[in-house]
Amino acid sequence: MSIILDHVNYTYSSGTAYEIQALKDINIQIEDGQFIGIIGHTGSGKSTLIQHMNGLVKATSGAIYFNGQDIYDEDFDLRNLRTKVGLVFQYPEHQLFETTIFDDVSFGPKNQGLTKDEAGLRAFEALKMVGLDESLYYQSPFDLSGGQKRRVAIAGVLAMRPEMIILDEPTAGLDPKGRDEILDLISKMHDEKNITIVLVSHSMEDVAKYVQRIIVMNDGSVMFDDCPSEVFKHYKELEAAGLAAPQVTYLMHELKERGIDVDTEATTVEEAKRSILKALC
């Protein structure tokens, strides 16, 4: 599975007073099994970009290829694409609607045309994956806590067995514990089910810890597209774009300036610890 975005442009409300060019000449290639982070401050075009990846928004110009097929072709099945490229929106708990959690999670598989049993099986599997307690399956989703609701909503997408999952700010509004749980869940989906993950966030710390590749969006265009340590080398430019590198990066640069020979490419606390110990011993 691969997705290629080729010279994609997108303009909101074109021809009116509210015209905004949200995406400018985007060229991205996403390969099978990658764990990608998309970073950018509010209004940089992150959300618009990911809605292109499963065909919810049609590019003003440019082409998108899914496994080599042009998704804007007349005979391309967009609904099928959406089940392969799952998209978890920001605050996904707001889209819950069924009377029981189990029914809500079965909604996606049922739309795929699966039988009731099969859909139920997948719902069960997805709910197990997100680690929701079994006693809750037949309760109303509206009675759950915020973090639990979010896990149910993610299960709703997971139940379609997508090959790729895009998550838009999955940790927004959660406390540190809820945030870690969600991020661990996402990395579990990547490691165990080999699902390609695209994680949209504005927290560098979150992203640095998990992803293999970072795409930095600024003002509608791709600013950097590289592995975390390469991207964080440009921490000064990131700051200018309203973002910040992980605190570890700042610490390591500071130490280096003060004459301690540490590795400034460390991006996580763990790596930094090792590097500092090595330099001091």
Binding site: R82, F89, Q95, F107
Partner: peptide, 24 residues
Amino acid sequence: KAQMARGADFETGGIIKKAKNMVP
């Protein structure tokens, strides 16, 4: 959009089916 991402269909079908599809 969120429901369409889960395969919901708001466009095709008769009036009754369309009305039912509006529940989500």
